[in-house]
Each structure stands twice: as structure tokens, then as C-alpha cells.
């Protein structure tokens, strides 16, 4: 493999005991929190493989929930996440299960109901060293590591909407690294997920919100955990 960075070897600063079962789990929770769009009322976590077998001893359950409370993998409140969630009136449940043959051993499927009453299903895996990948959002296969900004749109399924979005990205000098569209035939709408190399200065969401046919738009930023005591490897 290519030479890893110094910070791939030393760090991250994290809450133990396991980079994949604890730090990675917290990161998955945090990404799910961002993707589910805000305050969580109820969450069911389906744990697969090694997550299912060892989640109590590794604190995977506490870490997942801490992430859903928007805590970082290096936050010492992580081990008290059950109490924190209870205080916020969040209902949570951990369900060991089998998500299938070819599923990564450290995988969790979140079924989240937010305060707006929306339900989202998000599946992700902790692939080692605290690194994670989100593989499914509301039934759409994706491959997001959370290391780059992601734009999520929900829009009318009609010609021109996507080209308007990509045109705005072009005008702002933003390069697309990965994108996916999925449509719902029932209500003639579509969701689109775009992973961008980086952002530039302008107000991207405001510009995209103004596109005719746009229902809503979300921007998920790589979370900067480099301030304080966390290292770069800790950022989502």
C-alpha cells in the first residue's frame, strides 16, 4: 500500500476500547444523525456480525448512540450516552440481527424517526482504524465515507432539475466525486446524493433551494474535529 500519513499511524484521539467498534461506531452514529436531518425521537439499531456479537463489551451501543447525539468519537461523555439520550427523551433500541451474507462484519442499520415525523433508514459499516462507510440511505445504495461534503436533494422528478443543480456546482467551481439518483414513482419525486471534492465560498444550499422543482436540500459537511484535542483522522 502507499505510505500512510503520520496521522494515520499516530491517532486518532478517541474513546476506547476499539477503533472499529467504538470510534468508528460513534462516527457512524454521527453521520446517521446528520443524514436523518436533525433531532431524533426514536431509533432502532440493527447490529450485524461482530457488532452483534461484541457490542456490549466494546461499548458499540454507547458509541452509536453518542454519535446520534452529535458527540465526537473523542468526547468523554460518550460512555454516558444512555443517560444523555434518556434526558433528551430519545427512545432507542439495539437489535442484534443478520443483515445478510456479504455484509461487512461491523455493520449497523439505523431506523430513525426524527422530530418532524420522518423515518430514515441508514446502513453503514466500520471498516477499520475508525474509518467508516455509509452504504445505504433510504434504500439507495451509496458509498460515502463522510470525508468530503455531501449534498442531498429531494426534488420533482422532471427534466432539467439535475442539470440546474450541476450547473450551479459548475459555476461555483465545485467538482463532483460521486453521485446517485433514485426516484419514487408514487409521488414523482427523486432524491439525489452528490459527494463533492470540496466546497468553495458561495452559499450553495441557498442557490440550489431556488431551483424550480426543489423540495428540500441538505448539505452534510465533513465535521471538523481537529480543533481541541482531536486529530485529523477523527474528522467526519
Amino acid at each position: 500500500m502507499p505510505t500512510p500519513s503520520l496521522f494515520d499511524i499516530m491517532g486518532p484521539i478517541m474513546i476506547g476500547p476499539s477503533s472499529s467498534h467504538t470510534a468508528g461506531a460513534a462516527r457512524l452514529g454521527k453521520m446517521a444523525y446528520k443524514l436523518a436531518g436533525g433531532d431524533i425521537k426514536d431509533v432502532k439499531m440493527y447490529l450485524h456480525g461482530s457488532f452483534a456479537a461484541t457490542y456490549r463489551g466494546h461499548g458499540t451501543d454507547k458509541a452509536l448512540l453518542a454519535g446520534l447525539l452529535n458527540l465526537n468519537p473523542s468526547d468523554e461523555r460518550l460512555r454516558h450516552s444512555f443517560e444523555l439520550a434518556a434526558k433528551k427523551g430519545i427512545h432507542y433500541e439495539f437489535i442484534p440481527t443478520n443483515l445478510g451474507e456479504n455484509v461487512h462484519p461491523n455493520t449497523v442499520k439505523f431506523v430513525i424517526t426524527n422530530s418532524a415525523g420522518e423515518t430514515h433508514e441508514i446502513t453503514g459499516s466500520s471498516i477499520g482504524g475508525g474509518q467508516v462507510v455509509i452504504s445505504d440511505i433510504d434504500g439507495m445504495e451509496v458509498n460515502f465515507t463522510g470525508e468530503r461534503p455531501i449534498l442531498v436533494t429531494h426534488h420533482k422528478d422532471e427534466p432539467g432539475v439535475i442539470s440546474n443543480i450541476t450547473f450551479i456546482l459548475y459555476e461555483m467551481g465545485i467538482n463532483i466525486g460521486n453521485m446517485r439518483v433514485s426516484r419514487s414513482r408514487e409521488d414523482h419525486t427523486a432524491h439525489m446524493y452528490i459527494e463533492m471534492d470540496s466546497l468553495t465560498g458561495g452559499d450553495l444550499t441557498a442557490a440550489i433551494r431556488n431551483i424550480p422543482g426543489m423540495l428540500w436540500v441538505k448539505l452534510l459537511l465533513p465535521i471538523d474535529e481537529t480543533s481541541g484535542d482531536a486529530s485529523r483522522k477523527d474528522s467526519i
Partner: peptide, 18 residues
């Protein structure tokens, strides 16, 4: 022991060998 108790450590290179 801090690692096993869900305390804060530096993975170097890993949590198990911290």
C-alpha cells in the same frame, strides 16, 4: 485500562496497543 474502560486514549498505532 483507560482504553478498556471507555476512557480517552490515542490509537498508536491502534487502540489495543495504545
Amino acid at each position: 485500562e483507560v482504553n478498556a474502560s471507555m476512557g480517552r486514549i490515542v490509537a498508536c498505532p491502534t487502540a489495543g496497543s495504545c
